[in-house]
Write a protein that binds this DNA or RNA. Structure first.
Lengths: 149, 149
DNA sequence: TTATTATGTATCCAATATAGATACATTTAG
DNA sequence: CTAAATGTATCTATATTGGATACATAATAA
């Protein structure tokens, strides 16, 4: 099964940014799930990760729900990625490689370095966008997609 | 199950680069598999991808085997990644997201752009290393790991 | 020509990770 | 106290990968 946690979380965060811009509205896990085309359980599994990272603020109980914990402009997409993925490296090498030659002896260290470098490049790319800017991009996309007349 | 095709392929390519530097030696899928801690079947599933990408040259039949098709200096790691991963995007968004609002209407386009950008950054990072340079790095790692006296 | 020894593939099974569904404990506002 | 939200546990279905076996195909040595 394909891992859709990052795209799903990103859509949740964009929905929260939109709700914030429309007057600090709280969204429930059910509403977030319907918007993202998934079910409330998955949303409720993701919320604590975002909450621990300080990106959202969650209120339990009646009249509770979810909102962004910071202005949309201050939430860059790399922090969302990190909140969901955690310490998991982008790529994982095979374990139990026998040590027999220059390559097999040191592939693990080498691959670790390579992975960290690539990850850094990836996160830097994500850090160039924030939620507010992304909402603007969504608006531009919607405008472009309108049928011409 | 964790996907180890890229790390495995990278190790195979490094082994081939080492074999090349030691006198254009051919390696069999069995030898490559033993070095990488896997089985010949997986290696033989990966070889055609590298071959189609023009990175290796494979000879069937008795006395056959695998060698690099180009000098190690001219094989950058991004081409290896592309050969194995193909067109598969780095991240895949969920399908069947209902179109109901600014976010859900346009998330698919937005996420596609984001993914392509991140992928580009990733490949650029990989393109900074080639196989020859990587062998040198393996040698440096091995030297550093020697116990001091 | 024949035996040997490579790769290329098909097939099957096992292991693993994620998504989805249900249920229920916990928390909080009214 | 009730209603309604999140937090979590558990189970199942599904998809993907890796490993094993077998065999077709190809090419070389003898």
């Amino acid at each position: 099964m394909i891992d859709v946690r990052f795209p799903t979380t990103l859509q949740m965060m964009l929905s929260l940014a939109l709700a914030q811009s429309e007057g600090d509205i709280l969204l429930s896990s059910t509403q977030l799930a319907e918007g993202a085309g998934t079910n409330p359980t998955l949303v409720r599994r993701l919320l604590p990760l975002l909450s621990k990272a300080g990106l959202i603020s969650v209120t339990k109980g009646r009249e509770g729900g979810v909102r962004l914990a910071r202005p949309a402009r201050e939430v860059t997409l790399d922090t969302i990625y990190r909140a969901i993925v955690g310490d998991e490296p982008l790529w994982t090498a095979r374990e139990n490689v026998p040590h027999r030659c220059l390559v097999s002896n040191n592939i693990s260290s080498f691959f670790g370095r390579l992975t960290r470098e690539a990850e850094e490049a990836l996160l830097l790319s994500l850090s160039r966008r924030d939620l507010a800017e992304s909402l603007e991009e969504l608006r531009r996309i919607e405008t472009c997609a309108l049928p011409g007349r």
